[in-house]
Design a binder for these strands. Structure first.
Lengths: 164, 164
DNA sequence: GGACAATTGTTGTCGTCAACAACAATCTTT
DNA sequence: AAAGATTGTTGTTGACGACAACAATTGTCC
């Protein structure tokens, strides 16, 4: 029993089946409330948009930021390792790195221990840039805090801790 | 202070800059931990994949499910209203409804009160199908519960309640 | 009442992103 | 040495959001 076929008040009709509904009248969500996925999706959209807006002046998107952060914290990583760590496909990482390399934030050094792979490093320029990005990201994080509340954010982080 | 330029142990190098790292050696995330957006993104991906897998036998994706649910709970809504409620573009909703109408789950009834708009309804077939989808969605929700814990899920839903 | 603005559904384009598949070069295993 | 696995790369597909344009219709304002 899933409380599935829950019927919600069908409001007043207008003959043909169109519902009379004033503009501010809210639309029932029925079973969508109670679905974690739906709520998480909405939050995710909000967070990403704020991130993109806050880091807009430096033109860095969330994925780019995560790549730079991981490389900065683990210089010398291979593309495979970065992709696996961030859960993005290595095919996708190729384009991300192409872009970041064009902007002189990252360089691919050919590894001598394994001539198939590249050792990823931040350039000096990339390191200083990343420092600025992190300041902006912290600002963005304060926006999140303002949106959902300080201890709610803390709790959220704790709940999702093992999702890395 | 953002604790920005936090330096994490750069491990042992191998001459050219490649890092020696055993397969199970974990890769530091540095500043990524502590970013709500990153954690939320990972959770969102996990949830969506489980949803798609669990509702795979009926070939219904999260967005399709949300559209059917809203129409089922509010028969007679216009496309505009549904799009606004779910935060999807009306241009996108056109294709979603085309697909759902082809599968005989939904029908567009031309409204007589406003000849521009369509009143959206589930077909009888769509209603019974939705009941099954809801059972599967509830099963998916139990997967989420098993993944993050019962009261963590509850708390998550409470935190995100006003994100509708 | 009639001109003008706004809304609704539709079509189309563009860019992002995940999921695959295929490939050459290069290890690794046996 | 041969067979199989891994790494980076290229390309294709499909879902999705953001826009812009358009015809039909409705609402507004004078």
């Amino acid at each position: 029993m899933t409380s599935s076929a829950a019927q919600t008040s069908p409001r007043k009709r207008a003959g043909n089946g169109a519902v009379q509904r004033s503009d501010s009248d809210e639309v029932g969500l029925d079973a969508l409330v109670g679905h974690a996925g739906y709520a998480v999706r909405r939050l995710q959209i909000w967070i990403f948009q704020d991130f993109i807006r806050t880091l807009g002046e430096v033109d860095i998107r969330p994925t780019q930021y995560s790549v730079l952060t991981v490389i900065g914290a683990n210089p010398g990583l291979s593309q495979m390792a970065v992709a696996k760590r961030l859960g993005i496909e290595r095919a996708r990482l190729v384009h991300l790195l192409d872009s970041l390399e064009r902007r002189r934030y990252v360089k691919r050094v050919k590894s001598k221990t394994d001539r198939r792979s590249h050792a990823l490093h931040l350039t000096a320029q990339g390191a200083t840039a990343l420092a600025k990005f992190k300041r902006l990201a912290a600002e963005h994080e304060r926006h999140v805090e303002a949106k959902i509340g300080r201890e709610n954010r803390q709790h959220l982080l704790r709940i999702l801790a093992d999702f890395t």
